[in-house]
Simulated assay, not measured.
Amino acid sequence: MKKHLEIWSETDRQKRKQAIDELYAETCEVFDPNYADVFRGHDALMGLIDEVQSKFPGFVFTKRQQDEHHNIVKLTWSFGPLDQPDAITGEDVFIMNGDLIQTLYIFIDHP
């Protein structure tokens, strides 16, 4: 899941698009607690990442812990600038379809 966090931190849209194509199913669904609507497909995911990056310039994701079994992966992360890498923390839960992310649930910790 290292590549997942690299995708969310990647600012080069072309590199990010290529990585999304390699890691996410074309019909992926992303559930973010800050939005009522589900993000469906690669284009919607790109738009969500663009928005996150524009709200938090210079922030990067860092892996904290990972656990997985069967087709489920749980990943805890931190998000912040280099001088405060734990500014925001949270957890992603993935439903995998083979090697591809089919569904992503994002959980953001509240202070």
Results as ranks from 00 to 15, higher is better:
residue 2 K to S: 14
residue 71 N to G: 06
residue 102 Q to R: 13
residue 4 H to E: 08
residue 40 R to E: 13
residue 109 D to Q: 12
residue 61 F to S: 06
residue 104 L to W: 00
residue 11 T to G: 03
residue 95 I to N: 09
residue 55 K to M: 13
residue 29 E to P: 00
residue 50 D to G: 07
residue 71 N to F: 03
residue 52 V to M: 12
residue 4 H to D: 11
residue 25 A to E: 03
residue 8 W to L: 03
residue 44 A to W: 00
residue 38 V to P: 00
residue 52 V to L: 13
residue 62 T to M: 07
residue 13 R to N: 12
residue 104 L to I: 01
residue 72 I to E: 04
residue 15 K to T: 14
residue 62 T to I: 05
residue 68 E to S: 14
residue 110 H to I: 10
residue 32 D to P: 04
residue 42 H to W: 09
residue 90 G to H: 07
residue 70 H to C: 08
residue 71 N to C: 00
residue 3 K to N: 13
residue 92 D to A: 08
residue 102 Q to S: 15
residue 38 V to S: 04
residue 30 V to N: 10
residue 100 L to H: 10
residue 24 Y to P: 06
residue 55 K to I: 02
residue 28 C to P: 01
residue 45 L to V: 06
residue 51 E to A: 14
residue 11 T to C: 08
residue 48 L to T: 04
residue 64 R to L: 12
residue 52 V to D: 01
residue 32 D to S: 14
residue 1 M to R: 04
residue 92 D to C: 09
residue 59 F to Y: 15
residue 111 P to Y: 11
residue 70 H to M: 09
residue 87 A to D: 11
residue 72 I to A: 01
residue 101 I to S: 09
residue 109 D to E: 14
residue 7 I to Q: 01
residue 99 D to I: 06
residue 18 Q to A: 15
residue 28 C to T: 14
residue 90 G to L: 05
residue 51 E to R: 14
residue 100 L to Y: 11
residue 42 H to L: 08
residue 55 K to E: 10
residue 92 D to H: 12
residue 83 D to E: 13
residue 83 D to L: 08
residue 58 G to F: 05
residue 80 G to R: 09
residue 2 K to P: 01
residue 44 A to M: 11
residue 59 F to H: 15
residue 38 V to G: 04
residue 15 K to P: 02
residue 83 D to N: 14
residue 108 I to D: 08
residue 101 I to K: 00
residue 13 R to V: 15
residue 6 E to T: 03
residue 88 I to N: 11
residue 71 N to H: 11
residue 76 T to P: 03
residue 18 Q to S: 14
residue 28 C to G: 08
residue 70 H to I: 01
residue 19 A to D: 07
residue 87 A to F: 14
residue 92 D to S: 14
residue 85 P to K: 05
residue 35 Y to R: 04
residue 15 K to L: 15
residue 58 G to W: 07
residue 27 T to G: 10
residue 43 D to R: 08
residue 90 G to Y: 07
residue 81 P to S: 13
residue 37 D to K: 09
residue 4 H to A: 06
residue 13 R to F: 09
residue 47 G to M: 03
residue 92 D to M: 06
residue 32 D to Q: 00
residue 105 Y to Q: 09
residue 104 L to D: 12
residue 53 Q to L: 12
residue 90 G to R: 08
residue 48 L to I: 05
residue 83 D to W: 11
residue 57 P to T: 06
residue 60 V to C: 09
residue 20 I to L: 11
residue 23 L to R: 01
residue 24 Y to T: 04
residue 107 F to A: 06
residue 5 L to V: 00
residue 44 A to K: 09
residue 76 T to C: 03
residue 101 I to M: 05
residue 50 D to M: 05
residue 57 P to C: 10
residue 20 I to H: 05
residue 87 A to P: 05
residue 94 F to M: 11
residue 72 I to G: 01
residue 103 T to R: 15
residue 27 T to N: 15
residue 44 A to Y: 03
residue 73 V to H: 01
residue 37 D to C: 02
residue 64 R to D: 12
residue 87 A to V: 05
residue 45 L to Y: 06
residue 41 G to F: 01
residue 49 I to N: 12
residue 82 L to N: 10
residue 29 E to G: 13
residue 7 I to N: 00
residue 99 D to L: 02
residue 103 T to N: 12
residue 25 A to R: 04
residue 104 L to G: 02
residue 29 E to M: 10
residue 73 V to S: 03
residue 4 H to R: 04
residue 107 F to Q: 10
residue 30 V to T: 15
residue 42 H to R: 08
residue 25 A to K: 01
residue 88 I to G: 05
residue 107 F to S: 08
residue 100 L to I: 00
residue 77 W to K: 07
residue 37 D to T: 12
residue 69 H to E: 12
